[in-house]
């Protein structure tokens, strides 16, 4: 028999499915929700419901959005001829934080991964090539992660996009700002020296 009333046990079980939430944390969160006001509990429940009901993928860039096309794709102040390709929607936030990129995005939703049976046909590439093929793009920046899967995905996209006569660039790899060369790993240092630039 459960130690808690059925609705409480059910909420704890559901919360335990969230990343980083164990049994004790789930129990604490469930009791917090129980103690909160009806309005707060309802607001949480409706936020979860709306998240699933209202969010979808942007038909242009595949970003997660509540309006289609997304706010980046409809923003007239952004440079729509400069497209940055990222693996996941969460990568957009990291680039936006720099306040240095004014182009638009394209989200692949993954990388090529032979060990997981993920080939190029499983990624969202077709609407990118359609955009480029329609002459809407001057430059594509490939901002996939510098892992072997990210690098191979970038190489695959570069080959496919160059056939469409568009400028294709890759983000630089190197020593993180504010770090110490002494503690930089061998692969990063190799890439940093390989990608050095003249001053």
């Amino acid at each position: 028999m459960s130690r808690f009333a059925e609705p409480m046990a059910r909420l704890i079980e559901e919360l335990k499915k969230l990343p980083g939430i164990g049994g004790k944390s789930a129990q604490r969160l469930a009791f917090h929700i129980l103690r909160s006001s009806d309005d707060d509990a309802e607001a949480l429940a409706s936020a979860v419901r709306d998240l699933k009901a209202q969010l979808r993928l942007c038909s242009i860039c595949n970003n997660i959005t509540d309006v289609d096309p997304c706010s980046y794709c409809t923003n007239p102040t952004r440079n729509h001829r400069l497209v940055c390709v990222v693996e996941e929607p969460t990568n957009i936030a990291a680039i936006e934080k720099t306040k240095h990129f004014n182009g638009v995005y394209h989200v692949l939703h993954g990388t090529i991964s032979p060990l997981h049976g993920v080939g190029p046909e499983h990624l969202r590439i077709s609407n990118l090539t359609r955009r480029v093929d329609a002459g809407e793009v001057d430059e594509v920046i490939l901002a996939t992660n510098p892992t072997i899967e990210g690098e191979a995905t970038a190489s695959y996209l570069a080959d496919a996009l160059k056939k469409l006569r568009v400028k294709v660039t890759r983000i630089a790899t190197g020593v993180p700002a504010g770090s110490d060369i002494e503690y930089t790993d061998e692969v990063t240092m190799h890439k940093a020296i390989e990608g050095r630039r003249e001053l």
Binding site: S113, P114, T147, I148, E151, S155, V187, H190
Partner: peptide, 25 residues
């Protein structure tokens, strides 16, 4: 883990990734 040789020090193409994945699998 100290790196002695990394596949990332050479250009990683799609065929090379599939080949390396096959060896690993």
């Amino acid at each position: 883990c100290e790196v002695m040789d990394s596949p990332l020090t050479r250009q990683m193409t799609y065929p090379r990734l599939v080949a390396l994945g096959h060896v690993a699998e």
